[in-house]
Computed example of a mutant assay.
Amino acid sequence: MTLTPQHITDIRLSWQVLAADADAFAADFYDRLFRRDPALRPLFSATDLPAQRRKLVAAIGLVVRHAGDLAPVLGPLAELGARHAGYGVKEADYATVGGALIEAIAACLREAFTPGIRDAWAAAYGAVAATMMAGADAAAPRKSA
């Protein structure tokens, strides 16, 4: 999937604001995620959440850096999707995560959160989620007919 030049600009400019207090942004994301679907919380029961927040911020930063050409991150994202499937993440969970992410971005940006910024982040997340789900699918054991 290719992001438009405007998507790339919107993502990069808004990321500067989000990354200024990245840990608070990531903590808000996880709070929103667990409120949207409390059943996801057990997937993180053995997880160091401060470390997980740093990983999330690093992953988003990587996508932002490569927004103009996502090809270099597609392989790592597919591998991440395969690992997430092993943790118990289901395809339906990606919509929940995407919703929580957009909510957290909107809350952080406040009045600077425009429909264009929403569209840009939704497009970027859609590309990431599709790649991760494809990685999970490719890693799934096949049932014989």
Rank of each mutant, 00 (worst) to 15 (best):
R12V: 02
L13V: 10
S14P: 00
Q16C: 11
V17D: 13
V17F: 09
A19G: 05
D21R: 13
D23L: 02
A24P: 08
F25G: 04
A27M: 05
D28E: 13
F29K: 02
D31Q: 13
L33M: 12
R35G: 10
R36G: 07
R36F: 10
R36K: 14
P38W: 03
P38Q: 08
P38I: 07
P38C: 06
A39F: 15
L40P: 01
L40S: 09
R41F: 10
F44R: 10
S45A: 15
A46Y: 12
A46Q: 15
T47K: 06
D48N: 12
L49D: 04
P50Y: 02
Q52L: 08
R53Q: 11
R54E: 12
K55M: 06
K55L: 05
V57K: 01
A58Y: 03
A59P: 02
G61E: 03
G61S: 02
L62P: 01
L62D: 07
V63G: 11
V63S: 15
V63E: 03
V64T: 02
H66W: 10
A67F: 07
P72S: 10
P72Y: 13
V73H: 01
L74D: 12
G75Y: 08
P76V: 08
P76F: 06
L77S: 07
E79G: 14
R83N: 10
H84F: 09
H84A: 12
A85E: 13
G86S: 06
V89H: 03
K90F: 04
K90T: 05
A92S: 13
D93I: 06
D93L: 05
T96A: 11
V97Q: 03
V97W: 02
G98C: 14
G99K: 00
G99L: 01
A100N: 07
A100M: 04
A100Y: 00
I102H: 10
E103K: 00
E103P: 02
I105S: 04
A106T: 05
A106R: 12
A106Y: 08
A106H: 05
A107H: 14
C108Y: 09
L109P: 00
R110N: 12
F113D: 06
R118K: 15
R118S: 09
A124F: 03
A124S: 15
Y125G: 09
Y125S: 03
G126F: 11
G126L: 13
V128K: 04
T131W: 04
M132C: 12
M133F: 03
A134R: 15
G135R: 03
G135H: 04
G135S: 10
A136D: 02
A136K: 02
A138N: 09
A138P: 10
